[in-house]
Design a protein around this nucleic acid. Sequence first.
RNA 1: GGAGAGUUGGCCGAGUUGGUUGAAGGCGCUCGCCUGCUAAGCGAGUAAGGGGCUAAACGCUCCUUCGAGGGUUCGAAUCCCUCACUCUCCGCCA
Length: 426
Amino acid sequence: MLDARFVRENLDAVKQAMASRGCEWDFDAFSRLDEERRELIGQIEALQARRNEASKQIGELMKSGQRDEAETRKAEVREVNEGISAIDAHLAQVDEDVCRLLLTIPNIPDASVPVGADESENVEVRRWGTPREFAFEPKAHWDLGPELGVIDFEAGVKLAKSRFVVLGKHGARLNRALINFMLDTHAERGYTEWSVPALANAETLTGTGQLPKFEDDLFKTSEGLYLIPTAEVQLTNLHRDDMLEAADLPLYYCAYTPCFREEAGAAGRDTRGMIRVHQFDKVEMVKFATPETSYAELEGMVVDAGNIMELLGLPYRVITLCTGDMGFSAAKTYDLEVWLPSYGAYKEISSCSDCTDFQARRASIKYRGGEFKGSRFVHTLNGSGLAVGRCLVAVLENYQQADGSVIVPEVLRPYMGGLEVITADS
RNA sequence: GGAGAGUUGGCCGAGUUGGUUGAAGGCGCUCGCCUGCUAAGCGAGUAAGGGGCUAAACGCUCCUUCGAGGGUUCGAAUCCCUCACUCUCCGCCA
């Protein structure tokens, strides 16, 4: 969420920022409501000051036995109170409208973010590794997986519905190996591991920005809880309403969780395979940093995500999302894309964002003890490290051999009981 | 699920015959003094959010907030109701 005063005082800059995102926002309504709100607050507070003054006098009159005079003042206050409640009802409505507007305006892109309309205008930053030249026709994971018995698409549909998958045999173990490998690797780099609920309440999801605007993307339970779309939600909200110490920053957190997404607007996209499914595993990284260091921390997070693919020997590239392609809460986002032979292209496997104080303001996450008076909002960052399902797909496709078997990357073998090759009958 | 106790500022903790208590005291923190160093000591300051005044900073002023919401009252941390959460005991259970 943006600060109402900031929007008011930087109206043109905010308008420009929203235009660069291709985001429609009712600035006129905001200005109107914001002004009305302040006007009403002024009126109410003037009346409240009168009431407080009179009440104090009534107390004194009662003590000194001037009952009649006290009764007169009481009648006066009753009248003042009627005025207050009338205005108050109006203010409550205006407040709600202002709040609703502020909760639906996205973060302002950082100045370094390329301006662009959509993903075609994202900017490549760097590449690591070289896509392998196959001496045979490589298979896509939607063929390879079932043939090896590691992915079962039909079973997923039977147990739940389309866009759910079942991992079997070495697939299940490879999945678990990836999770453990990622968590262990991040731990070595200073990330504290957490295990968090897979369900979250509305307040939590409002804190990170999924609600109220993107409720359609979430699975919801009958009692009002939501299945988390990412562990970012939980890790970031761990410190909701907290006051952190500057000396403790930055904080590095990570967690493995399943993630659940309705994919409401994704009909027809990535329909084959397990690239886009309703439930997938992900290891997530979250940082809490000061405004001074947050962009440097973002660079570091991208390195930490890329490190996983480098250790796995998976070719990838890093791109900077342009203004039109960035997520709601982010001020700057790097996507990491892994090479997938089935797509003949790089495909998103991680998204690392600096949300600046956007989430911290919603969730009230502050810190103190720095070179400033009082407290300030922290900057929150999050990034996948990595999406496990897509990583499993990348391993299968990139490490496949002509006979249909798949070599297990060396770093994963300790997690696979020393297994070196996945074959259909192993 | 049943019964009881609790929820106060960065933290701990007073405050329930309603009225200068936004809140004693302590800890922590900041500044100053003192002090070979450190520790201790002395003095002052120290909640947040919002409105207004000011070109702005400083500052001044007003309002709100004692788990959340509602009620009683001229006035509520203090009385009443509802809800949430925490703790203890019982029940149930992986």
